[in-house]
Amino acid sequence: MDNLAAIGLDGVPGVVGADSSGTIWTWNLVTGDRRERPLDLDNAAPEDPVPDADGEIWDEDDSDEEEDDLLEEEPPTADPDEVVSRLAAANFDGRPVVVTGGGRFDLTHLLGEDYMGGAVRVWDLGTGHKIGKTLTGHGLGVCSLVTVSSERGPLVLSSSEEGKLLVWDLTRGELIADLKGSYNGEMTAALVGGRPIAVTGGEDSSLQVWDVLSGEQLGEPLTGIEPVVRAIAIAEVNGRAVVVAGGDEMTARVWDIARGEQIGVPLSGHTGSIRSIAVTRLNGATVAVTGSEDGTARIWDIARGQQLGDPLAGHEGAIEVVVTTEIDGRPIAVTGGEDGTVRAWNLTLM
């Protein structure tokens, strides 16, 4: 399973994932308990009018003109795998929620062949019911999805195949920024100096840094990476904010955000594309954990540019590092693989 996110479960570290049937799974990382909850996909369709590929607006009332024809057709149904193409998690009004980003044909299954995908939805983790409205605005599928806190409250950021970065106010369900990133855009976001910052990348040989609330690009693009960028993380190293990114060139690179400069040497060792990056603290140092298509995860001391210990191996096929957290003071990494398994690793033992 390679569609996972970190989440708090009654004050205990946990992880949440989704399978191709639209079922949400949660794991308590302390007890190992696993629970499942199907999503209420009957309510996945948009409530508001949606423009089709030609810019025409779809509305449920339009169907009245062709009611006889529609009665002969099967009602539209959501494709679970398309609805839950990407996944993130957050706490909303004191309860854990799951945020999903739709694939390229998400809305095609619900509205017809003139519509594509990329809808964002919020789901109550306890009931599986949708919270608020289906959020639309992408023309193609969501490539990356994250949540981040801000002075406005929790935000949801989604980047898509057409290179669009949308920022949503989770509390109000309002779109607050529509930015232009990279095609097939990878993205991450975090608080830097108390301000939510996003970093985007994709099929360009650079990364872009954004002030999420103002919608302004910060500084010049961060250059020196080869496309396609498939994983980005933001960390703090020795008091300065840095970006760690990797992808098809099979190495991870590090940039100082304030200076806009690449620092250190590339982190090399993987033999397949880097699919994900998570960051944590280990023995007083900031480390990155990278997951790759070569079936391993590797731990890196970012400041020193060195790999720590042996690769984390055991999955078959590509893996994703989705979260690093602490249990009883021990940093834990969680990996999900295309082999359908989820594994937790005590990094102090590596």
Rank of each mutant, 00 (worst) to 15 (best):
D124G: 08
L87I: 10
T280W: 03
G14F: 06
D10K: 12
R330I: 14
R304I: 01
E261Q: 13
G181H: 07
R240V: 14
A177N: 12
G163P: 00
R95V: 14
W25M: 11
D106W: 00
D248H: 14
S20T: 14
D79N: 15
T188E: 01
F92D: 07
I197K: 08
A88S: 13
G260V: 12
G17L: 03
L41Y: 02
I7C: 08
I234E: 01
W345Q: 08
R34P: 01
S144H: 05
L140G: 09
G291S: 07
A231T: 03
T296W: 00
G141I: 00
E293H: 12
A231E: 04
S21W: 12
G264D: 07
S159N: 11
L111R: 10
W123P: 04
L166M: 13
S150P: 03
D59V: 12
V12G: 05
N28F: 00
L145F: 01
L349M: 15
E113S: 15
S150H: 07
T77W: 10
V289R: 06
Q306Y: 10
I197S: 05
L347T: 09
P154L: 07
G193P: 07
T348P: 09
V242R: 04
L175A: 08
I319R: 11
I232E: 02
V146P: 01
V199W: 06
A252C: 09
I277T: 01
D33C: 07
T324W: 02
E60C: 12
D61R: 15
E316C: 12
S214E: 10
D106Q: 01
L218H: 04
D310M: 12
G17Q: 01
Y183P: 00
H129M: 10
A45T: 12
E249C: 07
A119K: 04
E66N: 13
R34I: 10
G224S: 01
N184E: 15
W27M: 14
V30Y: 08
E47R: 13
A119H: 09
I257P: 01
S273N: 11
L166K: 10
S144L: 02
G193E: 09
A6D: 11
V242N: 02
N184S: 15
G247M: 01
I332T: 05
S21F: 13
G118V: 02
L39S: 09
L125K: 00
L179P: 06
G295M: 07
E60L: 15
V148W: 01
A78V: 00
G181S: 08
E36L: 12
G139T: 11
L110Y: 03
S158M: 00
S292R: 00
A258G: 03
L165E: 09
P154H: 03
V122D: 02
G126Q: 13
R240G: 06
T325W: 10
E326L: 11
V212R: 10
I263L: 11
V322G: 15
A313H: 07
L125C: 04
I299P: 06
